[in-house]
Nucleic acid binder design. Structure first.
Lengths: 142, 142
DNA sequence: TATGATTATGAAACAATGTTGCATAAAAAG
DNA sequence: CTTTTTATGCAACATTGTTTCATAATCATA
């Protein structure tokens, strides 16, 4: 982690009107240093340091609320989280990209360049969000 | 639950080479009598009868393996399950429909008539499955 | 339709995951 | 530097998921 990232993490927290704490900075560093999406247990295991379980839950919830991260649905037990692009905000998410879950290595990644296609539902439904999760085998595992 | 359904449940189990047991029949009845997708806890609460937790887990896993039900990814803790159409089989799922989660009533439903659009990924990815989960407000809740 | 082989179930014990309340510690505001 | 506000850690608890093993139910077949 270089100094530039530290500065941007600070700015990110400040922009979301969140106080700057060790836990929040370290969790954001973990997100920035990892390619894929992280699941909850990662935060307790990683970083040589133990975060308290409760603090991690609360921090992730706060980041979700503020639009700093987004959650990725899964059919296993663990929800995954990934950083939002910088143009997301509290009430205006637009992470309209596809997520990919590799069945070999287990990694979940955001395919930023692959847009979610438009979905047309029968009349009467109000659409707030569309999640697309593709599973298969990623480049590295083939 | 009428007799016709009972017969078809029996046939369904037999077709999947599963022995016909009370638990399996009752869990399938729950699926057939419910419009939306069911989460695990439903099976323990519903039906006036208490199923053992372990049996429910094993039964759902068996049904998944045999292609009788499919799972629907969520960003909350509970995985949802719904019946597959009759033309699914053990190694050949084709439930290529969109799922809808209502933010008001919480119900998750299969939109059988809304196909999952084709997704084009960057080169190198092998696609096995595409899950689309739309969240918003359903007809009944508007 | 009884019998043995096979498979499913339930119980117990455990492991992992998620939640709540409250005292303390840290950060922000003045 | 002090006060106010907010975040954290701990403890206790609740829920969810897993493993093992003895018992019970189902199936195949005689």
């Amino acid at each position: 982690m270089n100094n530039k990232n530290k500065v941007s993490i600070t700015e990110l927290l400040r922009a979301s009107k969140l106080s700057i704490t060790d836990t929040r900075v370290k969790i954001l560093e973990l997100f920035m240093n990892s390619n894929g999406a992280l699941e909850h247990s990662s935060f307790e295991k990683l970083a040589g340091q133990t975060f308290d379980r409760v603090t991690v839950y609360r921090t992730l919830q706060t980041f979700l609320d503020k639009g700093i991260i987004h959650s990725i649905p899964t059919t296993d037990t663990s929800i995954r989280y990934a950083l939002c692009k910088s143009d997301c905000s509290e009430h205006d998410h637009h992470d309209h990209h596809v997520h990919f879950k590799c069945e070999e290595c287990g990694a979940t990644t955001c395919l930023e360049d692959t847009d979610v296609p438009e979905i047309h539902l029968p009349k009467g439904y109000a659409i707030h969000n569309v999640d697309v999760v593709v599973s298969g085998v990623c480049k590295q595992c083939r």
